[in-house]
Design a protein around this nucleic acid. Structure first.
Length: 884
RNA sequence: GCCCUCUUGGCGGAACUGGUAGACGCAACGGACUUAAAAUCCGUCGUUCGCGAGGACGUGCCGGUUCGAGUCCGGCAGAGGGCACCA
């Protein structure tokens, strides 16, 4: 593989030579297309002509295309490249279609990696980040993207986050912000809060200390209050992928159920409430369970070391849902007994349990083991009764029993007093009615969606503009004091929060009383930064967060493109934030993204050296079945194929590809083969094919003898010329449709077919040459969104003096795309036996007669009786015969 | 554990709303051109039986619906994404 590309590199250098072409009128031109010379030339022309600068122009329809902006981790990898090239194809296509296109780019510049780099390399996060931005910007520029760079910004720039702080204060005033406690991963050695990904097997990644959970008072955006609106508005996002809409619906997790009050045999805690989605199973209840964070559990733990230890044990599982859900179900019997609301004398033991979440519902449940798997696992472990109260249709209630699998299906109620015989929905209604009349319960709706905790005990983020005063409490920073900027002399490689530890930064006079007070030393979740950047792009010079004229013109984003990994959090937070911005008057829209395309991820094998360190693909050499580290020959472990990420080092930089084959070949290759929504594994094979395509197009264009630009259309065409014209127009129609539907790989295939036909075509006469010019021009315009440099070079070679970037998209002539005959497949009993050409839209009787007259058909029928003939117009005829 | 995807030749994939499975590209193989190589051009290319015409089988696995299933339904297996402090 390596050898092949070295050969190619050598070739590339040789290709710079020029020669005199025999059919050309004495002009010097390249025998080989030299991307290295051509590509920078056109990029300079585009830049000098300011052709991608977007301005408000009400004479054209606007089109805002945006790819999710990158985190400046250091280098762009080919996975990013696919994303941006896709957006660029759309931007260039829409421009050619006459739209006024906005296609901006910026940097999601706050985040953990900068702090890690600061600790490892002793470099300030800002310095590291801006250095990365410089590198990545030059990489993106290399790709020839049609971006309006005048709108560029980084979220770590105070000129950006100042407005974010302003909006935080506005949202606070408007009641979208709350302050409450939540659990965090606490590293007791480093005295720092850890991100979930920094907790490995319950231990801090750096210190190795067992991670504890701590309660901190933090800022939250009240997204849960908007749950219903965010849920119902998903119905209108009909240009989003269904799977993303479904994931968001599930995430919001609306569930209808009931809250039920249980009385306790404890004077101190006389009652508590549970939430259930299955109030119909109340007669099957055999225990109650409360969260470790439930006030009763916390209260009972005081002075009870066994319970305190149990709670501590549960907390070691961690804060992630995945860890809690997969952990073994554990409970601690509090000794308390809850009275069953309906059954006089029946009591249920009350456990503190590790699988009950305080954040969901009321932090307390009743367990009905027969009809909930989690409850059943728990009941089996602690020897609790399992009484079925819903029996499947057709089963006898007396004999129906539940073993190791809970019955969660439909059925009739049993063992349930007044509900016996009812269906599940009827029973739900009946039990709620009874609970209401007894004043011990009512129907209620809860959501899985929790408020969005935005406080982070980190340095490299947007400071939260709040001040804590001993006398006045929490006081917002006055607008005129914004931005609250990060100190430039923070020390990062010590335990604890750098802002809290900084000697002077936090000290400030209280804006209300003037006495000494303390700044909030937390910074915002970086998801806040990315929840409104699309609005800032409309005018990055606006003196407030947004310029209403600009956002009213450009928003919403017409086409948003990004990885499926953001299907939930980023998109949901942006939807919330946009609504909050609307209420604060910063935008007129509620939904930020009209159309969404989630591209598949680029994956690659992962590699580890004997010490377990990740290796870059370029550090690995493969020999037959084994892999070794280049240079050292150490054995390398080949790991799973995973999404390209810097943390696992399975990344391929785009420069190497672009340098050897040219950017257009890389762009063409990225758009070919894999459908864009699907994951695709990067491989070096195939880029050669793209390179050959580029060379082939160049050869065909430059070797053609053509009439001058603007020569009048001949009155008649030869059969071959007509055929070529038909292909050109059919290809135009097909590629246009493919691009509209994001079927880039199919558009590429259509253009390959077109080029194959052009390679075979011989222009014998003037009309043939005219048709050839038409076809070549069509090809150049159609391929332009994908290979824009090659398109410009070809356009010039075709003697045009204008730029392709200013040229309109070709239109297919319906007279030339029409098909007159169709091939109809003939089946006998569903098996294909023959085919027949028929005029398009021939009526069923004509087709049937023609089909039955075929020899092959008669042979296949073999004398059996024809039961019926199914004719699908223009497609298929199926003859159904009596079976032997 | 829960939610969401995906699975088609040696490989990436195509097949519009259930209607000719394998378009197009890659790789491989055979040939032409060349002193030679590269480039280029022509051809073969799911498996299998057959001299051939042609036939049988074939879209992860098992089953179902249908005149007809890669496509729809039920079940299973494998791979991947998300699970709230990675972005």
């Amino acid at each position: 593989m390596e050898r092949a590309s070295e050969t190619r590199r050598a070739l590339f250098l040789r290709a710079a030579s020029t020669s005199l072409h025999p059919e050309n009128d004495g002009t010097l031109f390249m025998s080989r297309y030299n991307a290295r010379e051509v590509e920078p030339k056109w990029q300079k022309q585009w830049e000098d002509g300011n052709v991608f600068l977007a301005k408000i122009d009400r004479s054209k329809p606007k089109y805002y295309v945006l790819e999710m902006f990158p985190y400046p981790s250091g280098k762009i990898h080919i996975g990013h490249g696919r994303n941006y090239v896709m957006g660029d194809v759309v931007a260039r296509y829409k421009r050619a279609m006459g739209f006024n296109v906005l296609h901006p780019m910026g940097w999601d510049a706050f985040g953990l990696p900068a702090e890690n780099a600061a600790m490892e390399q002793k470099v300030q996060p800002g310095k590291w980040t801006y250095a990365n931005i410089a590198t990545m910007k030059s990489q993106l520029k290399l790709l020839g993207l049609s971006i309006d760079w005048s709108r560029e910004f980084a979220t770590c720039d105070p000129a950006y986050y100042k407005h974010q702080q302003k909006m935080f204060l506005d949202f606070h005033r408007l009641g979208f912000v709350a302050r409450k406690e939540s659990n965090v991963n606490w590293d007791p050695v480093d005295h720092t809060v850890l991100a979930n990904e920094q907790v490995i097997d319950g231990k801090g990644w750096r210190s190795g200390a067992v991670v504890e959970q701590r309660k901190l008072t933090q800022w939250f955006f009240k997204i849960a209050d908007m749950a219903e609106e965010l849920l119902s508005a998903i119905d209108d996002l009909d240009r989003w992928p269904d799977k993303v809409r479904l994931m968001q619906r599930n995430w919001i997790g609306r569930s209808e159920g009931a809250r039920v009050t249980f009385k306790l045999n404890d004077p101190k805690h006389s009652t508590f409430e549970v939430f259930t989605t299955r109030p119909d199973t109340l007669f099957g209840a055999s225990f109650c369970a409360i969260s470790t964070d439930h006030p009763i559990a916390q209260d009972l733990a005081k002075g009870n070391t066994a319970l305190t230890d149990f709670i501590a044990e549960c907390k070691r599982i961690g804060t992630t849902e995945a860890a809690i859900e997969t952990a073994e179900k554990m409970g601690f019997d509090t000794g308390l007994k809850a009275k069953h609301p309906f059954v006089e004398g029946q009591t249920l033991p009350v456990y503190v349990a590790n699988f009950v979440l305080m954040e969901y519902g009321l932090g307390a449940i009743f367990g009905c083991p027969a009809h909930d798997q989690r409850d059943l696992d728990f009941a089996r472990k602690y020897g609790l009764p399992v009484l079925p109260v819903v029996v499947p249709e057709g089963e006898d209630p007396k004999t129906f029993s539940v073993g190791t699998e809970a019955y969660t299906g439909d059925g009739r109620l049993a063992n349930s007093d007044f509900m016996d015989g009812m269906s599940v929905p009827d029973a739900k209604r009946a039990v709620i009615k009874t609970l209401e009349s007894m004043k011990v319960g009512r129907s209620t709706i809860t959501y899985r969606l929790r408020d969005w905790g935005v406080s982070r005990q980190r340095f490299w983020g947007c400071p939260i503009p709040m001040i804590h005063c001993a006398a006045c409490g929490v006081v917002p920073v006055p607008d005129e004091d914004l931005p609250v900027t990060l100190p430039e002399d923070a020390v990062l490689d010590e335990p604890g929060s750098p802002l809290a530890r900084h000697p002077t930064w936090k000290n400030v006079a209280c804006p209300k009383c003037g006495k000494p007070a303390r700044r909030d030393t937390d910074t915002m979740d970086t998801f806040v930064d990315s929840s409104w950047y699309f609005a800032r792009f409309c005018d990055n010079t606006a003196t407030g967060p947004t310029n209403r004229e600009a956002v009213d013109y450009w928003m919403p984003v017409d086409q948003y493109i990004g990885g499926i990994e953001h299907a939930i959090l980023h998109l949901l937070y942006s939807r919330f934030f946009t609504r909050a911005m609307r209420k604060a008057g910063y935008t007129g829209v509620s939904e930020p993204f009209l159309r969404l395309f989630t591209q598949g991820m680029i994956t690659h094998e992962t590699y580890k050296d004997p010490d377990g360190k990740w290796l870059l693909p370029e550090e690995v050499e493969k020999r037959d079945d084994i892999a070794v580290k280049r240079g050292t020959n150490q054995p390398v472990t080949i790991g799973a194929v995973e999404k390209m990420s810097k943390s696992k080092k399975n990344v391929v930089p785009p420069e190497a590809v672009a340098d050897t084959y040219g950017v257009d070949a890389a762009r063409w290759f990225m758009m070919s083969d894999s459908p864009p929504e699907r994951d695709s594994e990067w491989s070096d094979a195939g880029i050669e094919g793209a390179w050959r395509f580029v060379q082939r197009v160049w050869r065909i264009v430059t070797e053609a003898s053509l009439p001058a630009v603007g020569t009048a259309m001949p009155g008649a065409f030869s059969a071959e010329a007509l055929e070529l014209r038909q292909l050109a127009h059919r290809t135009t129609a097909a590629v246009t449709e493919d691009l509209e539907k994001f079927r880039f790989n199919k558009a590429v295939a259509r253009m390959y077919e077109f080029v194959n036909a052009l390679g075979d075509y011989k222009a014998a006469s003037a009309d043939g040459q005219w048709a050839l010019r038409e076809a070549l021009e069509t090809l150049v315009l159609l391929m332009n969104p994908m290979v824009p440099h090659l398109a410009e070079e070809c356009w010039q070679s075709l003697r045009h003096t204008t730029l392709v970037v200013h040229t309109a998209w070709p239109k297919a002539d319906p007279a030339l795309t029409r098909q007159d005959t169709v091939t109809i497949a003939i089946q006998v009993d569903g098996k294909r036996r023959d085919e027949i050409d028929m005029p398009k839209d021939a009526d069923a009787k004509t087709v049937e007669a023609a089909v039955l007259a075929r020899d092959m058909v008669a042979k296949a029928i073999d004398g059996r009786r024809v039961k019926k003939v199914i004719i699908v117009p223009n497609r298929i005829a199926n003859i159904v015969v009596e079976r032997a």
